[in-house]
Design a protein around this nucleic acid. Structure first.
Lengths: 305, 305
DNA sequence: ATGTGTCTATTCCATTTTGGACTATAGTTC
DNA sequence: GAACTATAGTCCAAAATGGAATAGACACAT
């Protein structure tokens, strides 16, 4: 017998973050915990489940079969909690909260670090975040970050950032493959790709007038954060919006050989439902986001096509 | 601003139990906690949510509008955790766990109190319970308690209990309305009904050859436990499987006036998928359940039609 | 080989949280 | 008003959480 205990909420968050970041340390960083705490939480959850959820590979974790099952349900559970909070926030009468859905990568690497400044300047505006909410509840949100070409019927879409997509790799990798003299050299490299944006490499090939785009090997990841981590780890070349990896470029962990890149149609947008009455607080938030986005793209004005 | 914390798992369980039992004390009992602990957990969750989830009515709790939203999502979140456990249990190779889905009322009032005996006698058989799992994942279970007439295509159904449905009310209520001399007197009483089994009263009227069944007032509840609580509280007459309220009948909190009742087609069944290879452990569990059910119905052999 | 960097697991310990026993208090019913 | 039942609050011991530091495993470069 075993009336299996349910995992703790923080345990679920740890599992979800581990799936997204691939290492205990970076998941800990994202959760504002220490590596030690995350390691212990994972151990707890695995004890509750009764079997390991991640394989320890020596340079990070990768989900086991059980882990993949568990991660999926953990995200559903977390999404339900977020949905609950979002729907309840909509009931609050006095000063209704703005319900904002953020994408994992954009939230972690761009939005959240900046948002604290907004919160300081506008303490009266209450923003309710969701990141796990299932797609069919997004319609309840007041604003949703999305990735695409900016066309969602029924939604106003304002460009945020991400048009400036660059080719990056770790210096070691590029040294090992002896640089990139012509664009065709790229085909010799292993390439990294995000599962949900599969057209990136084709777009790039097209923009560079590269025919016969048949790369040596393509590795796909479920999260953009894993793509970036793999690129930093020298596992291949990746196409990434410049604005998301400013730190890595400045720190030399990633480089942009020959300044290669292109202007992508697919990028990040802030979308707001058309059919809702104007909301002053929402307008303030949107204006601030767009302004911050412009500033952060102009701070690095090495724009190229 | 407020990056709203997520509630704790025990908080979700408390909210779900409160919805089901309607009082802090009985929810605490069901969760094997004290009233104090449940009260504090509820306070925590309400603090996280930012608004009250239940109205304190003086004789229990009833969900606020926000509460109803939250309860729904809490059940989804808990269901996801259970689903995760269930699916992972299916992967365990050595001695696969039996995945058993129990109905709230049957589990609380009949199955769980008895199950510990089974667990003692068969420590080698690992049973994995779900109670919140969404209906579309039930197909993964090895055995599912269901309520109905015993016909589910693709499932073998064994009768467990609940055919013997009796009319009950609190002694005070029946005194107040001056007894039940003829069956038609029932129409003078307020009636209590479970939302998911709406045909009960019609079936009863039919079994008693009662024409023109137009009761004075019908109150509906989402959980059978609330129906029973309301009946004990003297809020009306209810139709309840005798086996679920043996204690209340023995203790005099509920009485069965004039022995009224009927044999219902709708009752509790243990169902197992047809298409699965025979499983010795499952057969042991099923036999034990059916035997216990027979025993508990025969212990009170005042069966009537 | 060996150092270096990067990763996880573990130990120790302070802090926080949890939950039980008990008490206070408010509402209902007789 | 007494008895009963309900929730909320206080006090305290026990359990958990999480941070700092440490140890150990692995890859990679020299």
């Amino acid at each position: 017998m075993s009336r299996s205990h349910l995992p703790s909420t923080i345990g679920l968050r740890v599992v979800a973050a581990l799936a997204q970041y691939g290492t205990v340390s970076s998941a800990a960083n994202a959760l504002h915990l220490t590596q030690s705490a995350v390691s212990k939480q994972l151990k707890n959850v695995e004890a509750v489940v009764g079997m390991p959820l991640f394989d320890r590979t020596g340079q990070g974790l990768s989900p086991t079969q059980a882990g993949m099952i568990y991660i999926e349900q953990a995200r559903i559970a977390l999404g339900a909690m977020e949905t609950a909070a979002m729907r309840v926030a909509a009931l609050r009468s006095s000063q209704p909260a703005i319900r904002l859905h953020v994408l994992p990568i954009l939230g972690d690497r761009w939005f959240m670090p900046r948002f604290s400044r907004f919160a300081e300047r506008h303490p009266d505006i209450d923003v309710q975040f969701t990141t796990f909410a299932p797609t069919d509840t997004l319609e309840e949100a007041d604003a949703v970050f999305r990735f695409g070409i900016g066309e969602w019927p029924g939604w106003r879409a304002d460009y945020v950032l991400g048009r400036d997509v660059i080719l990056v790799g770790s210096p070691q990798l590029i040294a090992k493959y002896e640089g990139i003299a012509s664009i065709a050299d790229i085909l010799r490299y292993p390439l990294l790709e995000h599962l949900q944006t599969p057209l990136r490499w084709n777009d790039f090939a097209e923009a560079c007038h590269l025919r016969d785009f048949t790369p040596a090997r393509v590795t796909r990841f479920g999260y953009y954060s894993l793509v970036i981590r793999a690129a930093i780890g020298g596992q291949g070349l990746a196409l990434v919006p410049r604005s998301l990896i400013l730190d890595e470029l400045a720190g030399g962990q990633l480089m942009n050989p020959s300044g290669l890149g292109f202007t992508s149609r697919n990028c990040y947008w802030l979308t707001t439902p058309d059919d809702r009455p104007p909301n002053a607080s929402l307008a303030v938030l949107r204006d601030w986001i767009l302004q911050e986005a412009q500033a952060s793209e102009h701070n690095n004005p090495e724009g190229l096509s």
